[in-house]
């Protein structure tokens, strides 16, 4: 085995470890928030504001005296949860559209492609800002905007996968055998699509977290006192010189989860590429 292959294998192993560790932390955090919360995330205690870490408040308190650790952990649930909801919606809308456009062709396909081109002409963030600006601030509107921006990616990817695969002889042979379009889709096309969708979704997962956080940060997403990380960053702006840790905690949390999502994406890509193993 060459040196390069050896180090690649080590990196792959390290990746799996990293994912497992971060996933474990996330799960522990969610479990903690459900089972055992010492503090109400929105309970203010102005007498004890901006406190340093103590046994009672391991990460201190914020400018209204709320426990930072509690808010951070609840933020996991909110940020990751919102992001998953948005992703699921984008996939559920995008995949059938892509399949239809790819298999049907004709005017369905043309219409779809024009819509997709329109969406792709603007950066995601710009569309999300404009939409949530128009609909008014609030997490619901923000998620709606994100889904509207993201479904196009899935539809396009599924469409192009379908278009390349249906030309291949194995699909022709399946057609000669009289397999229904649905069976061909399920048995022959889905294995190609699932891998691609999962990889794209795990990479998108990180992007959506960033999008939610950044839009919340500028006040378009989750509203205070919701313990969403972007909103927390926003709230801590006036204090960042005296109490920089108030920004550091949610910032680090965002970095960790986005990183984990990206590593997971890489890992899935390797896993679903069945050819990978034999390449030297």
């Amino acid at each position: 085995m060459s040196v390069l292959a050896h180090s690649q294998k080590r990196i792959k192993k390290a990746k799996v470890w990293l994912i497992s560790i971060i996933l474990l932390i996330v799960l522990a955090a969610i479990a903690y928030t459900f089972l055992y919360l010492k503090h109400d995330a929105t309970m203010t205690d102005v007498g004890n504001r901006l406190a340093s870490p103590t046994w009672g408040h391991p990460l201190g308190t914020d400018h209204l005296g709320r426990d930072v650790l509690t808010r951070l952990l609840l933020g996991f649930r909110l940020t990751v949860g919102y992001s998953l909801i948005a992703l699921a919606a984008a996939v559920i809308i995008g995949v059938p559209f892509g399949l239809m456009a790819g298999l049907r062709g004709g005017w369905v396909d043309r219409l779809f492609m024009r819509i997709a081109d329109g969406f792709l002409a603007f950066p995601d963030t710009v569309i999300a800002i404009v939409l949530s600006g128009l609909l008014g601030p609030g997490i619901g509107n923000l998620l709606f905007a994100i889904v509207l921006v993201k479904w196009v990616n899935y539809a396009r990817m599924v469409r192009s996968t379908v278009l390349t695969e249906v030309q291949k002889d194995y699909v022709t042979i399946a057609r000669i055998n009289g397999l229904s379009t649905f069976t061909i889709m399920r048995k022959h096309l889905l294995p190609h699509i699932i891998g691609n969708v999962l990889v794209l979704a795990s990479l998108d997962f990180g992007k959506i977290i960033l999008l939610i956080s950044s839009l919340s940060y500028i006040g378009l997403g989750a509203q205070p006192p919701t313990p969403e990380w972007g909103a927390m960053l926003n709230e801590s702006r006036p204090y960042f010189q005296a109490n920089p840790e108030m920004m550091v905690y949610p910032g680090l949390a965002i970095v960790a989860v986005v990183l984990a999502a990206n590593v997971l994406g890489d890992y899935l890509r390797d896993k679903f590429d069945v050819k990978k193993e034999v390449q030297p």
């Binding site: 291949k168 042979i173 000669i176 009289g178 022959h188 294995p191 050819k275």
Partner: peptide, 24 residues
């Protein structure tokens, strides 16, 4: 009848790589 025809007329193409689904 069509189903019977399909069942009885099978095929082998030139390119074996394209004739097998790489994911199966």
């Amino acid at each position: 009848q069509l189903r019977n025809y399909r069942r009885n007329v099978q095929t082998v193409f030139q390119n074996p790589t394209a004739s097998l689904n790489p994911k199966l």
